[in-house]
Amino acid sequence: MSARLPVPAADDSGGSQGVKAQLRLREMILAGELPGGARIAELTLVEILGVSRTPIRAALMRLEQEGLLEALPNGGYAVRTFSERDVADAIELRGTVEGLAARIAAERGVAPEVLAEARDCLASIDRLLERPALDDEAFTRYVDLNQRFHNLLSDMCASPVIVREIERVVNLPFASPSGFVVVQANSPRARDMLIVAQDQHRQVLAAIEQREGARAEGIMREHARLAQRNLREAVLGQVRMPGVRLIRPQ
């Protein structure tokens, strides 16, 4: 769920332990090992993770910033839960901000080398989707390439203000471009849905190259609606995905 989080230097043992604790705690939350509403006990985490309280506290603070935990009035943290509307609004917000970035990129123009990098990324996705079905390794590769393409789209607007807002919104729980892609992996329509998403990728890149700002913006907002459909399927229990138990049906 997080995007472009800073990685501590190799010799920063305290910081490295904090990041490792953060990653492990996130996994535990999304896997349901720490259920929604559960209060987080630092001493218990020290025993489970085998690290001191200092990196545990750093990890808890980061997960609060990500939105997976909430600070309690009397101290400590609890695992947050989210309404379906909360998640839908976060996805809608991502589509709006990414649409703005695409429009500005189209209106201001993009360096040829960046456009070439985006085309190469889409060509790699095309090669994956040539397969009649995706195994786990291929699907993991798709998720990486999908995230890379969305990062490139963000960078194309050349606006530090907008890039910062995109990074903020994709850190909202379940709002990242790949937040619900796992739903597609478990759906019988998986490959078909990915082909639709890839077509939208190609359409928005073409609109940016042709300097069609309004069209580029509209495509990115429509693109986010694929995640909205995946969200609904996950909440209805039609497919399984990590963390879905944190989402309350409306």
Rank of each mutant, 00 (worst) to 15 (best):
A133Y: 06
V183T: 10
Q198V: 04
R57G: 06
A227F: 01
S52I: 00
E27F: 00
L69Q: 09
M193A: 13
R4W: 01
N171W: 01
S178V: 02
L93P: 09
A227Q: 06
Q17Y: 10
R229D: 07
I40E: 05
R245W: 04
I247V: 07
S178I: 01
I247E: 01
E84I: 00
E167K: 13
E92C: 13
Q203H: 14
A106F: 09
F149S: 07
A123Y: 02
V97E: 01
V110D: 11
R103P: 01
E217H: 14
I56C: 00
P188I: 05
V204F: 04
M220P: 13
P188A: 07
I40G: 02
S13L: 12
L68Q: 10
Q228A: 09
E217A: 15
I208H: 08
A138N: 11
Q184V: 05
R62I: 00
F149A: 01
I91Y: 00
R215V: 15
L236M: 04
E167T: 11
F180E: 01
E64L: 02
A234N: 11
D199K: 14
A214I: 11
L129C: 07
V204D: 02
R229T: 08
E209F: 04
G95W: 00
A206M: 09
G50V: 02
R141V: 01
L194E: 06
L246M: 03
C157S: 11
E27M: 03
N171Y: 00
Q203L: 10
S16Q: 10
D199Q: 15
S16G: 10
G75Y: 08
L246S: 00
A78G: 09
D192H: 15
R119G: 12
E165V: 03
E107H: 15
L68M: 05
G95V: 07
A106P: 12
M61H: 13
V244T: 02
T44C: 07
L152N: 02
D144N: 10
E70A: 13
I166D: 04
V204I: 08
L23Y: 03
G237A: 02
V46R: 13
L231D: 04
P112K: 14
R229P: 07
I247L: 05
L5K: 04
P177Q: 10
L69M: 07
A102D: 07
A78M: 02
V196H: 07
V79G: 08
V87C: 07
E233H: 10
E222Q: 15
A185R: 12
H150A: 12
T54P: 05
A185Q: 13
G218A: 14
M28E: 10
S176N: 04
A197T: 06
R245D: 12
S154I: 00
S124E: 14
V97M: 06
V46T: 06
L246G: 01
T54M: 05
A106Q: 14
L153E: 03
S124M: 03
R108Q: 14
V170Y: 01
D11V: 07
G32H: 04
L122M: 09
R215S: 08
L60E: 04
R191L: 14
E42R: 15
S52C: 11
T54S: 09
V204G: 06
T96D: 15
G218V: 03
A31R: 06
R94H: 11
D89H: 14
D155C: 02
I91P: 02
